[in-house]
Write a protein that binds this DNA or RNA. Structure first.
Lengths: 122, 122
DNA sequence: CAGAATCCTTAACGATACTG
DNA sequence: CAGTATCGTTAAGGATTCTG
């Protein structure tokens, strides 16, 4: 739908394949949210991601569902309720992202440290 | 230059910060190439990344240099020679990407397995 | 509530030609 | 050899409006 002709390979390596699934401004955050809370319905998920539009949230969720990362359960009630949760693959992907997250935290520290240096220099 | 107003934060979490530095169609591959071979000059690096244009290679290398991932050493000779290598940060980022790469390899396996199933079904 | 549909802006990427 | 410069395409992301 949105992705470049539904990319999905051919991949030249594992990182390429993983990136294909995880890039998109919000995917890693959705992964994180769902990993923390287990199951969330659409509206709650949206409130947990300040700044995201409904269009983007749906779009990313649909792609993640296609990619087997997310389960979508529809309750035919009025008003409608839809719940999202991680599949086993989604959970393992989130686990695989953890070292990268740790690296990123260190990077943030370095950036802040440098800002302090610059500040006191002027 | 190319990046959204030089992004570089503010970041909402570590993954966000790491992704900012690693997204771009070629960056993780450049990281991998330099990690494997230690030091490469421009032309060799290019031949190691079939399909990349010179513009993209330079652009990505410059951003990675700005981000402290890559060292660039210029030898003032004729003809010119420039060598690229990973900094300590670049190396540790590459290490942090390894679990993601492993996850991606598993994903590729699953996709292939599914293709076989589909093939034999028709 | 959870979305579908539409329109629009911008950023990523690519191809080509030229240069110290 | 290792770049710049320029131009064009496509894809990602966002804002708004409408609906079962």
């Amino acid at each position: 739908m949105t992705r470049s002709a539904d990319r999905r390979g051919p991949y030249i390596c594992g990182i390429d394949a993983a990136m294909d699934v995880v890039t998109g401004k919000w995917k890693s955050l959705i992964l994180w949210e769902l990993d923390q809370h287990g199951t969330r319905r659409f509206g709650v998920l949206k409130r947990g991601l300040p700044g995201i539009s409904e269009k983007m949230l749906i779009q990313q969720l649909r792609e993640m569902e296609e990619d087997g990362l997310v389960d979508r359960e529809v309750f035919r009630e009025v008003p409608p309720r839809v719940e999202y949760s991680l599949t086993a693959q989604g959970k393992s992907l989130n686990a695989a992202l953890r070292p990268l997250g740790a690296w990123g935290k260190e990077r943030i520290k370095r950036i802040k440290a440098r800002m302090v240096t610059v500040d006191s220099a002027e």
